Simulated assay, not measured.
Amino acid sequence: MKRQYETLLLEERGAVDHLTLNRPESLNALNPTMVDELRNYFRDLATRPDRRIVVLKGAGRAFCAGLDLKAEESHALDTVQQGLAFQRSIAEIYIAMRRCPQPIVTLINGAACGGGLSLVLASDIRIASTTVKMNCAYIRVGLGGCDMGSSYFLPRLVGSALASELILTGKFINAERSLKLGLVSQVVEPEDLDAAAEEDIQLMLGNSPLGLRLSKEALNVNIDIGSLEAAIALEDRNQILCSQSKDGKEGMTAFAERRAPHYQDV
């Protein structure tokens, strides 16, 4: 049974989830309800192998303007303990995004600020529209510039020098610079965002389900791994797991027979 949300729209198209942040009147800012719904959604994916890919986007003219500082619940934090608990509840979204086995394709339109930028950074494939403006907004509201995984994701994506520039200044970067920095893989017109993702989606759906899940796992683990030998050991383990599965045998047989494979996730 498909779950109903207050702040999200979920459309299942075959094995692909199309998840839309749906608070356009607030530029899809993260209020406590959206925080809870996003965290629970991405956590639940760990037990949903039938869902193979997630496409994430924002309704209206922005992707996500970050934390909703106007929400009353965001200010009702009277103690350090309450503040830390709320902070951690938001951070768990990004951890769950990296842990879930499904690749996440994020389509970015308009503003992606603060926690919205971190949603982009925690994704696997990022496609931007020409309207994109992104920044590490945290430092611009009296907080530290390192928040919601930004100090982890940005240096790994663009290097420490550029990450320092973005985190310490909070400056906006547009679509053109985002592409040059490697933050996004494509820039297209706003009306072409969905179409731009379709090629990648279809190619991923044409790969074995186990191979796709283990590939995301290896990419995330090996970016922090201590040695080449350890990285190769994980790759070797994954290849043997895949090759001994029925889908692995089907993939090799289909290649030899020059036909499309028929995968069943077995």
Rank of each mutant, 00 (worst) to 15 (best):
L168E: 14
L107C: 05
L162Y: 09
A128T: 09
A137L: 08
I139Y: 04
S160Q: 13
C146V: 12
L157G: 04
I139N: 06
A128P: 05
C146D: 12
I108E: 06
V141G: 08
L168K: 14
I108P: 05
Y152D: 10
A112D: 08
D147R: 12
V132N: 00
C136E: 07
R156T: 03
R99Q: 15
S150N: 09
L121H: 02
L157H: 00
V105W: 00
I95M: 14
A161R: 15
S164W: 07
L157S: 02
S151D: 15
N135L: 06
A111F: 09
L162T: 12
L154V: 00
A112Q: 06
T131H: 10
I167F: 05
A163K: 05
A96Y: 15
G149P: 07
T131Y: 08
S129I: 09
V120S: 04
M134P: 08
L119N: 05
R98E: 15
S164G: 11
L168M: 13
Y152E: 07
Y152L: 05
I95R: 15
G110H: 03
R98M: 14
S150L: 07
S118A: 12
R126L: 08
G159Y: 04
D124W: 00
I104T: 10
M134Q: 10
G116T: 02
R126I: 01
E165G: 03
P155G: 11
L119Q: 05
G145W: 00
I127F: 02
R140L: 15
L154S: 04
A96E: 15
L157T: 05
R98Q: 15
G116V: 01
A163I: 01
R140M: 14
M134E: 10
G159C: 13
C136Q: 08
N109D: 13
I125G: 04
L166R: 03
L121F: 06
C100Q: 11
A137M: 08
I104G: 05
G115P: 06
Y138N: 14
C146T: 10
I139A: 07
R99I: 02
Q102Y: 08
A137P: 01
I139W: 01
C113E: 13
G110V: 09
D124S: 03
S160L: 13
S151K: 09
P101R: 10
C113I: 10
G110F: 03
D147F: 05
I104K: 04
A122G: 11
S123T: 07
M97P: 02
P103T: 04
S160P: 09
P101N: 12
S151I: 02
I125D: 09
G142I: 06
T131E: 14
G149F: 06
L157V: 00
I93A: 12
M97G: 02
N109C: 07
I93G: 07
V132Y: 02
